[in-house]
Computed example of a mutant assay.
Amino acid sequence: MTTFQTKLDVALLLESAAWPALLVDPGGIIRRANNAAIELFGNGLHGASTSILSILSGETQADPAKYLTQLERSASAAMALNFKIKDGSAIIVPTSVCAFTRDDEKRFLFQLHGYGQAPAAKSDTSSIAKTEAAPAAPPKQKVDSRATQLARSVALDLNNTLTSIMGHCSWILSQMEPDNKWRKSMEEIARAAAKSADIAENLAAFSRSDKEKEATISTNANAVLRRIQQDSQMLKDRKVQWVAQFEEQLYSARCEESKLQQVFTRVIENAAEAGAVVPRITVQTRNSDLQATLQDTNLRLQPGCYICVEISDNGRGISPEILPRVFEPFFSTKPGHKGLGLAWVYGAVTNAGGGVAISSLHNQGTSVRLYIPAHKRVSRETGIVAVKPDAGAGKTILLV
């Protein structure tokens, strides 16, 4: 649950949402609903005393105020809620709930952002095969254009503000004596601003499209993975066992090297933190020249030329309840984590025209498969030989 204060026009916020949205008072009474919500739940939402509990299925809490208090104390800003819709059936919809205060009045905003993006799950107890790896639910393949525009605008405004904060902090610190009693506080402000700037960049990158650059980009993924293994201090500190199974004739990835390195690093760091007593990470690369649509768990990948980078760990695994939410921005089960790592990975890979699939088994580990668009040509790894600056000066070098 996220709590914030705002002066935004809530009515405009509700009406501009493409998904159902509800405004609820602390007593649980629905005070306002947008057209999408009325279409889903019926005209009963127009009533002056309609309770939020009346449209929730299976909720045993009889006191709507206590129910909202429980939501507010929740560590997560988004959750899967079971709703009763106007035709009498029950559906499970990913929903974000946030509390805010405006003109000294507290309100709760329910946004059913998962409705309409994919077929809603029926609320039943159908059996699940326990011998199969539990696949992640398909992430949203399309992001509403207005939401994307809002994300970019927020990231830009936040970055501009943080630039000013960091600039002033830097100037004050440069003028401040080393033993000044406020120096430590200023350094903390500067560090916090720098972390916030990283979050703003992640938010911008999540909705940024780089497809216009892909035709001229050619990256050797094997070389990137080897460099991460050699340079990662986390892998060294945790004494991670590294198992590499690389395709020697790997196609060239149509993705910038710096972005590919960030994608791999975030997945590898997650694997290193998977909770194994003796952590082991297995990294496989292979070519994937698809002649037909590929179905990998719930990922549907269109025909084309890709490389597949599969990163597996031997950790505790991810529970079936958590697995569908791993790509959800700001969702994390790890204390102190922002929940943007895999969300950023998913955004970067899909914006490049690829896809991400994930599967996991309890106490057997997790496997993440990254499908990166590729050129159907092999990118050779090259070594760099260090020479003295004046070596060969004045000589002619023949390149063949």
Rank of each mutant, 00 (worst) to 15 (best):
E328M: 13
T131S: 14
R238Q: 02
G44Q: 11
L68F: 00
D296K: 07
R226E: 10
V10M: 07
T382P: 04
L53I: 12
R146M: 12
G394I: 02
Q149A: 14
S252T: 03
Q261D: 06
C305Y: 00
Q261K: 13
N180L: 03
F246N: 14
L8A: 07
Q364C: 05
T382K: 06
V10I: 05
L45G: 09
E256V: 06
Q291H: 01
I91Y: 00
A253G: 09
K130I: 03
G114W: 02
A11T: 04
A37Q: 04
V385F: 11
L361D: 14
N35I: 13
G27P: 00
F83T: 15
A33P: 12
D157P: 04
R226P: 06
A205Q: 09
S312N: 06
H168Q: 10
A205I: 15
S57A: 13
D25M: 12
A36C: 15
G347K: 00
Q117V: 15
Q295N: 07
G353D: 07
Q233S: 12
V345P: 11
L323W: 06
P303V: 01
G317E: 15
E269T: 15
G275P: 13
S123D: 09
W171L: 15
T50L: 08
P119A: 14
V24R: 07
V10K: 07
A120R: 01
E201N: 11
P26C: 15
T95N: 08
S76L: 02
L399I: 12
M176C: 07
L71M: 08
N314D: 07
K338V: 03
I52A: 01
I397H: 07
A244F: 04
A37C: 13
A200E: 04
L156D: 03
Q249N: 10
